[in-house]
């Protein structure tokens, strides 16, 4: 279970406060969506969950399976099952996709006390998972994300997620930049990972993704706080009326 309690986050180098008392609980087995306007702090929440530098937690806590993860390095969180699919996946020139995937997969397996995958076993698993995401294995021989289209980058994120078998999946605007076919492929990939052992937090700006990845709950984030929580129908409502009703102070 993911428990975010009264989370306050500011930028480390500036006075800017972004999250102002965010509280949220995602039980295992559930998929929750976070919707909010641009600049409301969605990516900040995602980064703070993954452990990115540059943000300072000034109050509150994040518990994953009862344990605070705030002081942990990103790789330690990954070992504990945290995975962030980036809104803007990064390009790593010179590192082949397969090398990256194998290094990450085996690093995580090692820390979970699982045997490392041999090269043939690894390749077999990658091929299978890549095929489901419509990713050509040749693409993975190229440097990570370099020269990939927006849609290819997002699919490559989901492939990484499938390989690392996380238990907390945070997807930051995975739908942005996808056409309708790519959206379906990515959503199918995400849905395939839905399981009673997994919690998922799906961040999106638009309702359309939630037609494919149907959430158990929808949270509205504006001005650094969750302003409203509802069922999947809340997303449809937002689509019609926009976020105007949820400016922090008016709520």
């Amino acid at each position: 279970m993911l428990e975010i309690k009264n989370l306050h986050v500011k930028l480390e180098d500036e006075d800017k406060v972004i999250l102002k008392g965010l509280t949220l609980t995602v039980p295992k087995g559930e998929v929750h969506a976070i919707m909010g306007p641009n600049g409301s702090g969605k990516s900040t929440l995602a980064y703070v969950l993954a452990g990115r530098d540059g943000y300072e937690v000034t109050d509150g806590d994040i518990l994953w399976n009862g344990e605070s993860i705030i002081g942990m390095e990103p790789d330690e969180r990954a070992a504990k099952g945290v995975f962030l699919a980036f809104q803007y996946p990064m390009e790593i020139p010179g590192v082949a996709g397969l090398t990256f995937l194998r290094t990450a997969t085996n690093a995580v397996r090692k820390r979970r006390d699982l045997p490392e995958l041999s090269t043939p076993d690894f390749l077999k698993v990658v091929k299978e998972k890549a095929a489901k995401l419509n990713i050509d294995i040749q693409m993975l021989k190229r440097p990570v994300n370099v020269g990939f289209s927006g849609g290819e980058k997002k699919r490559s994120e989901i492939l990484q997620m499938a390989m690392l078998e996380p238990t907390l999946c945070v997807l930051d605007e995975t739908d942005s930049g996808l056409d309708i076919d790519a959206l379906r492929i990515v959503s199918d990939g995400v849905n395939a990972l839905r399981s009673p052992d997994r919690a998922m937090l799906v961040i999106t700006h638009y309702q359309r993704l939630l037609n494919h990845i149907v959430p158990d709950k929808v949270h509205v984030l504006t001005d650094g706080r969750i302003q409203k929580t509802g069922g999947k129908e809340l997303a449809l409502e937002l689509e019609k009326s926009g976020y105007a009703d949820y400016t922090g102070k008016a709520a």
């Binding site: 993954a50 452990g51 990115r52 530098d53 390095e73 990103p74 790789d75 969180r77 990954a78 070992a79 995975f83 962030l84 980036f86 996946p89 990064m90 790593i92 020139p93 010179g94 590192v95 090398t99 990256f100 290094t103 990450a104 690093a107 995580v108 820390r111 440097p143 990484q160 690392l164």
Partner: peptide, 21 residues
């Protein structure tokens, strides 16, 4: 950060990036 968020320890990530350079 991208590498460590995938579970790769920072020293390994550094070495990987330097080697790729």
């Amino acid at each position: 950060f991208y590498c460590t968020s995938r579970g790769i320890p920072a020293p390994v990530a550094r070495a990987m990036l330097i080697e790729s350079f």
